[in-house]
Design a protein around this nucleic acid. Structure first.
Length: 262
DNA sequence: ATGGTAGGTCTCCTA
């Protein structure tokens, strides 16, 4: 079977149900992995999401911040939300797909504004979080896995609108990129976006603070889908649903998706 | 060099 799997930092699931509906209409994903649902479980809009055509909905959230969800047309096994980096933040949710393929949905901390762990604890937390992901990955040698989500790091020069102007901006600093590279090396992950589009500028996020995001086009590729080498031959397509940035009351991130044969 | 917007709210914090 071919599955279309999407990742989307939705920045509040409750106010964007119409946008999820539109994503379903335009792209028909089989599985949607959400970050930043910003809602505690008691207030999660379960029935509304089931009504969009996802009988299998899993979520783990907290008030105001973070929060993960998986929406699926197929049954998911071994669904769990794991604590990361010594915090109680909801930033990692996993499930098992047909064929024993593990799906891992991550929301890496944004890391604040100042790229110095001594002055800005949020930045230190972000670096430690990625280091812990790397320790975790090293224990997973040989597994068939998909890692996706808002990793809040744009690693390559053509993942940002200006490499030079962003070198000291959190999301593109050498310290972050080094750590993301170490995570990528740990299992020789395939970065699916670059597997299909190795050279061109690619972004998945545009700040709310630009009055015309399309005209200024100061984007960054913060949202990623990676697969372990045994899954690389199964990749069929990659797509960034850029038009979603123009929808009414949009998230600052757009959905990113793959088609993969499992 | 600066400030710009959005969401959920612990009317500020995080992004």
């Amino acid at each position: 079977m071919t599955l279309r799997i999407a990742t989307w930092n939705i920045n509040s699931v409750r106010i964007r149900i119409p946008l999820l509906k539109r994503l379903v209409r335009e792209a028909a994903p089989d599985i949607v992995c959400l970050q930043e649902t910003k809602v505690e479980d008691a207030s999660f809009p379960l029935e509304e999401l089931k009504a969009l055509g996802f009988p299998h909905v899993h979520f783990s959230g907290q008030k105001s911040y973070n929060g993960m969800a998986l929406l699926s047309k197929i049954k998911l096994d071994k669904v769990q939300c794991m604590a990361m980096a010594g915090s109680d933040h909801k930033r990692h949710m996993a499930a098992t797909l047909p064929g024993g393929v593990e799906l891992h949905n991550f929301y890496v901390p944004a890391g604040g504004d100042i790229p110095d762990p001594k002055l800005n604890p949020a930045y230190g937390f972000k670096l430690r979080f990625v280091e812990e992901m790397t320790d975790w990955a090293r224990k997973k040698k040989g597994a068939k896995m998909i890692l996706l989500g808002d990793l809040n790091i744009a690693p390559l020069p053509h993942d940002v609108w200006s490499h030079k102007q962003l070198l000291k901006v959190v999301s593109h600093t050498p310290a972050e990129v080094e750590r993301l590279d170490a995570l990528k090396e740990a299992l020789t992950w395939c970065d699916v976006a670059r597997h299909f589009k190795p050279e061109e500028k690619l972004y998945s996020w545009w700040s709310y603070r630009n009055r015309d995001w399309r005209k200024s086009d100061r984007g960054r590729r913060l949202d990623h889908i990676w697969v372990t080498p045994p899954l690389t031959p199964a990749l069929k397509a990659f797509h960034i649903h850029k038009n979603a940035r123009d929808w009414d009351s949009p998230s600052d991130h757009v959905p990113v998706m793959i088609d993969i044969g499992l």
